[in-house]
Design a binder for these strands. Structure first.
Length: 490
RNA sequence: CGAGCUGUAGCGCAGUUGGUAGCGCGCUUCGUUCGGGACGAAGAGGUCGUGGGUUCGAGUCCCGCCAGCUCGACCA
């Protein structure tokens, strides 16, 4: 690890890439636009998978797997879908020496291939709801890429469900969005705003798209998850039908919902600082690193022994065991590296808690405790350390969310006219809560003039758009005005 | 696909009016160090993106091509 991270707030994306590379979460691959996820990064993804699977199962959804190759004709069956994805799909045209009779699209998403199976699996209303999820890689041939945030190939989770009625589908769409909302805040400690996408921004083939939007440290928005009500659009294209109680053949109503490795990027951009990665304890593999300080003159065995003892005391402590994850403790006995070097290193890769223990501490029966996000050293008696660690890990998770939430709330501005919006957007970025008239043309115009997009339409508890009592901030239109968030985004 | 910039050691870079390859970090070995990125000594590592041209001589000048980055269009 050569250089320290050099933060440049005016160059936030570069700062972010430095954190990713130097914390060894990911690397560029020889194939342009693709990303190599390193063990440091993949362990975060595994934690996300585990937490997400618990929630997915709790909703009655089961995991399955579908092929990555999709016959081109499948993609073309749903009109909006083909229009939305055609520009960014990779296509397999030959296999070995032979040209393929029908080209195969590498999945940009799996609605079509899954529907080809759903059409066979669903026969009766008794088969519904059919709730399936898969963990997979997908490929979207984007022009520009950025580690974790937008890569040609990425890993995600995509849920696909069939329901007997549009209402059931809508209820499930909303349920999964709420699940994502809760997940982002409790697991990633990343505050998000739930909402609905505009017609222009919704998923190709959906009736309605809900999303969660997060704010990064530079005030830009990041879409962190989506949940779509597909209505019967794909069912009609694939003839996914069931025989209902009333003896009539009906099309099913469907949902799909997904989150990707982008969550890792969002988490990094939300919490990390100039020293490197800050990892919420829920996502860490190693939670505590113990750095024994052993000068030549000191008895190495005594210090190492105390460090090992402390490590097991931490792992066996009942408070630590009660944490919602297996708490990893590392004792770094590598004597080729200096203590100072290790401090920087573990700050860089985001270990939540560091303990220093040396000969002077042993005499006093204490150790030095430092929390990654706070960075202040404290002397703590050895006997109290395990309980304190349990306490601090739990509060670090909460504090990160609280801090990020405060930052976000400070950067949400409520404006009612377009000129103020433009001025403030250029001055300080952030999110803009505005009265909005659902005008597609105006939306396009705002995007062209300011690069800000409609992130989401705000919803109330019943998932109804929040009504505004002011005219549209752009057009001055007075009817059917809702509250919406505009922002520049990643 | 348009505009701009950059290609020299694993990474980051310097290389003057053209004269035959350098620096920092990292890596290897040995020694001294070790409570916030130590120091000394000795090493390993480069057909200077690529093809052509000018020249006695090209990393350097000229032309073509290729790749990468940034900004646009596109997007989770």
């Amino acid at each position: 690890m050569a250089e320290k991270i050099t933060p440049r707030s005016e160059d936030f994306p570069q700062w972010y890439q430095d954190v990713v590379l130097q914390a060894r979460l990911a690397d560029y691959s020889p194939v342009k636009g693709c990303m190599v996820i390193r063990p440091n990064g993949y362990s975060i993804w595994e934690r996300i998978q585990r937490e997400m699977n618990d929630r997915i199962r709790a909703a009655g959804v089961r995991n399955a797997y579908f092929p990555m190759f999709i016959p081109e004709s499948f993609i073309k069956k749903e009109a909006d879908h083909v229009e939305g994805f055609a520009p960014q799909v990779a296509v397999v045209t030959h296999a070995g020496a032979k040209d393929l009779e029908e080209k195969l699209v590498v999945r940009p998403t799996s609605e079509t291939i899954i529907n080809s199976m759903f059409a066979k699996w669903v026969q009766s209303y008794r088969d519904l709801p059919l709730l399936i999820n898969q963990w997979a890689n997908v490929v979207r041939w984007e022009m520009r890429t950025r580690l974790f945030l937008r890569t040609t190939e990425f890993l995600w989770q995509e849920g696909h469900t069939c329901h007997a009625t549009l209402e059931d589908a809508e209820v499930f769409t909303q349920r999964m969005l709420k699940m994502y909302h809760e997940f982002a805040e409790t697991v990633l400690a990343m505050p998000v705003i739930p909402g609905m996408k505009s017609e222009a921004e919704k998923f190709a083939g959906a009736l309605r798209t809900y999303c969660i939007e997060a704010m990064m440290q530079d005030g830009k928005a990041l879409q962190a998850g989506t949940s779509h009500n597909l209505s019967d659009h794909f069912a009609k294209a694939f003839d996914t039908m069931f025989l209902d109680k009333d003896g009539k053949q009906k099309h099913v109503f469907q949902t799909s919902w997904g989150v990707s490795t982008r969550l890792i990027g969002g988490m990094i951009m939300t919490h990390s600082d100039d020293k490197g990665l800050v990892l919420p304890p829920m996502l860490a593999e190693t939670h505590v690193v113990i750095v024994p300080i052993v000068p030549k003159a000191a008895a190495a065995e005594a210090v190492y022994g105390a460090a090992d003892q402390l490590a097991s005391a931490i792992q066996e402590h009942s408070d630590v065991r009660r944490l919602p994850y297996r708490t990893g403790v590392l004792v770094d006995k590598d004597d080729t590296k200096q203590a100072g070097w290790k401090f920087h290193e573990y700050e860089l890769i985001g270990i939540p808690i560091r303990i220093e223990i040396g000969p002077r501490d042993l005499e006093k029966g204490q150790a030095v405790f430092t929390r990654r996000d706070v960075g202040v050293k404290e002397f703590v008696p050895l006997a109290e350390l395990p309980a304190k660690i349990a306490r601090e890990l739990a509060s670090m998770q909460k504090d990160l969310l609280a801090r990020a939430t405060a930052h976000r709330d400070q950067n949400i501005h409520e404006v009612r006219d377009y000129e103020t919006f433009k001025k403030l957007l250029d001055e300080k970025g952030g999110f803009y809560k505005v009265p909005w008239g659902l005008d597609r043309e105006a939306e396009e115009q705002i995007k062209n003039e300011t690069k800000a997009t409609l992130r989401c339409i705000l919803l109330d508890d019943r998932f109804q758009p929040v009504r505004a009592d002011a005219p549209c901030f752009k057009t001055g239109k007075k009817d059917g005005i809702v509250m919406a968030i505009f922002a520049r985004s990643y």
